[in-house]
Design a protein around this nucleic acid. Structure first.
Lengths: 183, 183
DNA sequence: GAAATATGATTAACATGTTAAATGAAATTT
DNA sequence: AAATTTCATTTAACATGTTAATCATATTTC
């Protein structure tokens, strides 16, 4: 019988050192454990929220990203592709693919700027607006229930802290820029 | 049943657009704007953090998910695939693909449980451990700088709030379960 | 005003997220 | 024991994330 392989449930232990210490496997653990990983905590929290919306969106034939785009478009008359990418927080290539699909489905409309043929302009169609109005109620209901469970004030505080985190790192230099001669 | 299907009461917060109001385009905005979207806020915060780590990982030929797996494996002697999926927070199919790749690269080792040939056992190899030790320093440095900028206490508080959010929604019924006859 | 450069958008290539289905093995039922 | 069901894992199919390359149009430079 091999070692007890059920040591996977980390996180409850009092081990907190950032320096290498002996782990359950007897090896040195060069880094903090998962429970202290910020990206992981953000990912888990986001997934806990999103799995509720995903079901609702899927019932309407929309992915999360498609919904973000339609939502962004519903708030304005028209917008350039680059601007839309920022607004919906998508990378260019993803947006490009999704717009192609949404256009084929008749949910959006496209044209180009006459003074600069490189730029594309996107707007939501009547059909797209209808779809949003069809999805919005359940989406709002889910958001309401989440707010009720977590608490409106706590939710507002979380929003503030997330925004502050983003702001804190906005001007943090990326590795590989100046000062890192390890390459 | 679970959620009140009427306009999610905005609670105490400064309500902005719980009910449809006219937006910049003159249309009705059926839902809250992006800046108040919790999934979006979590996504943006996570990306603000991850973009720093991604560069470092990429320099070592690793993706974020591959790193999560190696990290989880480094803390234990061996682990079953299903358990590893929970530990690294990956879905089965993703894990399956990544393990195949990591094994071909010699970073992990696999075998199967003799008493149950369905189950696979995974462990990190010496080469995998070396890679972790090579990546860990810059990873820790990045984490340290993030902590310094955001503040250790604030970071701990954020962790707590994220965990609480996850816990709040753990038993929240998903749409489509009992009581929702809107389909 | 043509060549060089810069910019907006798309395409390409590969990795992962997500859901459904298939595969193979063990447990259960008949 | 054979048939069925359950379980662990993998494969399949499609959508997106990510980086690099491409294409067309604009701007700059000489």
């Amino acid at each position: 019988m091999p070692v007890k392989t059920k040591a996977a449930r980390q996180g409850a232990g009092p081990r907190k050192a950032a320096a290498p210490v002996a782990g359950p496997a007897g090896r040195e653990m060069p880094i903090r454990d998962f429970s202290r990983s910020l990206p992981m905590a953000l990912l888990r929290a986001r997934e806990a929220v999103m799995r509720h919306f995903r079901i609702s969106l899927r019932a309407h034939g929309l992915t999360e990203q498609q919904w973000r785009i339609l939502r962004a478009l519903s708030a304005i008359d028209a917008i350039e592709v680059t601007e839309l990418a920022r607004s919906a927080y998508l990378l260019g290539p993803s947006l490009s693919r999704i717009l192609r699909d949404l256009e084929q489905r008749g949910l959006i409309e496209r044209r180009s700027v006459k003074t600069d043929l490189r730029r594309g302009i996107v707007s939501i169609s009547a059909k797209g607006l209808s779809l949003i109005e069809a999805v919005a109620p359940s989406s709002e209901a889910i958001y309401g229930e989440i707010t009720r469970r977590y608490g409106a004030e706590r939710l507002a505080a979380l929003h503030e802290m997330l925004g502050a985190l983003e702001a804190s790192l906005a001007d943090m230099p990326l590795p590989g820029s100046v000062g890192d001669a390890s390459e």
